[in-house]
């Protein structure tokens, strides 16, 4: 039951993009087409789950017992950068098809603050290992959902004639605001 609550809360109520403001850069950057949005969502889900698992284990087995909590930021960012490289190499070797689909997005992910954000959040909220993994997967699904919805709207928006100053980013931000407002309707569900 707890896991279902974590899932609903991370996907809808506390959506990582629309209510936590993490991962805005890819949200605005790679959301012009639904296909690329799906690819980015999948790549983030992949890396987020693995990196949360690894950073959690490092925190609990190395940093906490030795009182090195202050090294958290440095350790996590290096581990994430390293993992992204590793995932890229492994995926390239094992499944060229998957690499074709995710390849472009993988290097972008190390600077996605959602990944580091989730890794730190899990520690701050004092979750168990399984809860953390469920939380990471759900958050990534929430990210993908927001990205795909937004891409769908932007595909339509590209056909509209707008006042000159409003073209591009301003309109994208206002649409994102309306989307966030829609997601606020979920608050109180959990």
């Amino acid at each position: 039951m707890t896991y279902i609550l974590i899932f609903i809360s991370a996907v809808f109520v506390n959506n990582i993009v629309l209510s936590q403001f993490l991962g805005i850069c890819p949200f605005l950057g790679v959301s012009k087409k639904i296909d690329t949005a799906l690819g980015m969502g999948a790549a983030v889900a992949f890396v987020m789950t693995i990196s949360t698992l690894v950073t959690y284990l490092i925190q609990k087995t190395i940093l906490d017992p030795f009182g090195l909590g202050f090294l958290q930021t440095i350790t996590f960012i290096l581990v994430i950068a390293f993992l992204v490289q590793l995932v890229e190499i492994i995926v390239k070797k094992i499944s060229p098809a998957l690499y074709q689909a995710l390849g472009v997005f993988l290097p972008l992910i190390s600077t996605n603050c959602a990944i580091l954000g989730v890794a730190i959040m899990v520690i701050q909220k004092d979750m168990t290992l399984i809860e953390s993994v469920v939380f990471a997967i759900s958050t990534a699904i929430g990210f993908g959902l927001a990205l795909v919805l937004f891409a769908g709207i932007r595909e339509q928006l590209a056909l509209v004639k707008l006042p000159k100053g409003m073209e591009g980013t301003p309109t994208a931000l206002i649409v994102a605001g309306l989307l966030a407002m829609a997601f606020m309707g979920f608050s109180g569900v959990v």
Partner: peptide, 16 residues
């Protein structure tokens, strides 16, 4: 949350 997006959107539009 929604206000953040909308306020920034309009600020950038004004600056443009």
């Amino acid at each position: 949350a929604p206000g953040a997006f909308i306020a920034l959107g309009y600020l950038i539009a004004i600056i443009n």
